[in-house]
Amino acid sequence: MRQPTRTLWSLGIAVAIVVAASLASSVRADANLPRVVMTAEGIGPRQIEQRTGETVTHDYAQAWHDIAESLNSNRTDLLGEYLTGDCRKQLSQRIADQKRAGIRTEFVDNGHDVKAVFYSLDGGIMQLEDRAKLDTQVFDGQRTIYTGNSTHFYLVLMTPGADRWLIRSLQEVPEKAF
């Protein structure tokens, strides 16, 4: 019997991959990763294969875990291997600036509702819309200078690497852009 999720993928209906639910084996190994729920309703011109969807979901969650760690500790080496190109360069620059200014940013990541909206025919580019619920605190030394909890909207470009999907562009956009 086919699994329900597989059926949904093949029908091209809204697909939800819930890291915390459907990938139970991954959850134990990746308990520290933020929750990422991805749907692929209306994606084109190419459909996402189930395995690709699972990999993208995991790798996107891992990237956000790494971003939060590195911005909190001001360590570029924690940016990990799920970010590349300008995205990595920009975050590295921000971390260097934070370090110089003596500030740091702490995220409490309350999860990402991700919608895959574009997947090129050759499988080389995937575009995602992410509604990220983040509690953010900015510290200057020990002092909190900013606290905010809101939904952030990101337009994301991911490309496949040798064994993982990489975030190449992570652009925060106004809500109306979605």
Binding site: L91, Q98, T105, V138, Y146, E172
Partner: peptide, 9 residues
């Protein structure tokens, strides 16, 4: 303070 995607002032 200015905190942006790639810069902090």
């Amino acid at each position: 303070y200015l905190v942006g995607p790639n810069r902090v002032v």
